[in-house]
Every structure is written in structure tokens, then in C-alpha cells.
Simulated scan of single mutants.
Amino acid sequence: MKWQSFSLNRGIVFLSLVVLGLVLVSNHHLGYSFGDSIFRALGLPPWSEQGNHGLHISAITGIFLLIAGYLGATIYYLPRYRKIRSRIIIGCIAFVWLSPIVSEYAMFILKYNSTGIRSVAYSLKDSQCSFQTYENNRVHANCSLTLYNYGNQPTITLRPVTDNHPEIVFQPETFFVSPHSRVTINKEFIAVPDKELNFSGWSRVTKYEIEASGETKIVE
């Protein structure tokens, strides 16, 4: 009886590893993985280098757990359930596909009555900026970004932030946003640095300083 209980628990452990691995590697609706959010909440860096560069530690951990759980569950259940491999694979595909959809709806429900900075989120997906320096040392940033207003925040003020060039401080712009909405913003931001420089380039991963109801946060 004890051996049967241990054997059953071992099967549950393998399936739990599969689920945990899926959570770490799956993306939510903001364009980055749940693993990144979990690692940051635990005070751990999800990437080996700053600015989301280097080795993606949370994803590597998730893949390792997913493989270990899949192999263990297959070996354990295969003698009794011949379709266990296809069932796990189909379940993994469904989990990854549904994750961003479920997370988006969940946030709108959980933060339906929120205001201020808690109501606002920045989506990494489909967001980008191009930078160019023009006459009179004016730096222009043509940005396209997606924002979520989960609750009832009426206005959002934001500006792009460049880590490598702290002397470039873009003027913030204020936008009116509908409650409980997902909006795409296309806007040109302007900065006039104190010293002359020639700054140009393109970036899909851009930091923004967002202000709502007197509260400010940096998102990327």
C-alpha cells in the first residue's frame, strides 16, 4: 500500500514539473513570460545580463523542468496509458496558446475598478521606437506602443527612457485613454540634450516612464 502511494505521488510530481515548466516558459498578454514575473517577484534576475540580454535564465529553468517532467511522466504512465505522450503534448500546446488570452481577461477582471498606476500596463508586443538626431541637436523618437488601461484611469503621461544616454530626456506626453481598454499609441517624442551628439537607432525593447494620478513607474 505504501509503495502504491509512493508510486502515485511520483506520477503527480512528474506532471507538476510539466505544469511548472509550462508556467515558466509561457508568455502572458504583455509579451514576456510568467517566469520573468515570478523570478522578479522572488528577487531573482530572469536574464544573466541587464536589459533582458544574455542567457534567459527563467526560460532555461522552465525548459529543463518541462523535459524532466515529460520524460518522467512518460516512463511512469506509458505502461498503463498508451496515449500519455500525445496527451501531454496536446496539453502543453493548449496551455501555451491559452495563456495570453486567459491572463488578459483575468487582469481586466481583477483590476476592473482600479485607478492610478495599478490600472496601467505596457505591452512589449508590437511596441518599438526609432531614434534620430536632427538640426539644433533635437533628438526625435517615433514610437509605437500598446498600453492596457484595466480600470478607470482617465489619462496617462509617458516618455521613452534611454539607459545608455541619460543625458537624453524626452519631454513627456499625456494621452486620454478609455476605461477597460487596450490602446495602441503612435507618437513622436522630442528631447534637446545639453551636449551635442549624433544619436540614432531602432529598438523593440524600450523603457518608458509612465505617470498616472501622481504615481510614476518605469516599465520595459
Rank of each mutant, 00 (worst) to 15 (best):
Q132C: 03
G43T: 14
F6D: 11
G31E: 15
I88E: 03
A212I: 01
L15R: 01
I88W: 01
I88L: 03
S181Y: 09
P100A: 05
G51C: 13
A141V: 08
S203Q: 13
D36E: 15
R85D: 05
T74H: 11
A94T: 04
F199G: 06
F95D: 05
P172A: 08
K187C: 02
A59S: 06
V19T: 04
L147Q: 09
F34Y: 15
I190G: 09
F64L: 14
R10V: 01
A191P: 06
C92A: 15
W202F: 14
E135A: 13
F176C: 00
Q128H: 08
V192K: 05
S119K: 03
H28Q: 15
S5D: 12
V139P: 03
S16Y: 02
F170R: 00
E167S: 06
T155Q: 13
E167G: 12
G31P: 12
L145D: 00
Q4S: 14
S213Y: 04
N52R: 14
C129A: 14
D194T: 14
L66E: 07
D126Y: 07
T155W: 05
G116H: 00
I109C: 02
F39A: 11
G43L: 12
R159N: 09
I38P: 15
R82P: 02
T216D: 03
S48V: 04
L20V: 12
R182W: 02
S103N: 01
S103K: 01
G21D: 03
R87A: 13
L65C: 01
T206H: 00
G151R: 02
T157Q: 11
D126K: 04
S99T: 02
I185Q: 11
N149F: 02
G11T: 00
L42A: 15
W202K: 13
R40A: 12
Y105S: 13
R138Y: 07
G91D: 07
H29E: 15
V18F: 02
L110P: 00
E167Y: 08
I117W: 00
S127K: 01
Y105E: 14
E167R: 10
Y208H: 04
V120Q: 08
P179C: 06
N142I: 04
S48T: 12
P193I: 10
I93C: 04
S144I: 09
S5Q: 14
Q171E: 12
F108E: 09
K187N: 10
H29P: 08
Y77K: 11
S48C: 09
N113L: 08
E215K: 10
P166G: 04
A141H: 06
D163H: 07
S144N: 07
V139G: 04
Q50G: 11
I218N: 07
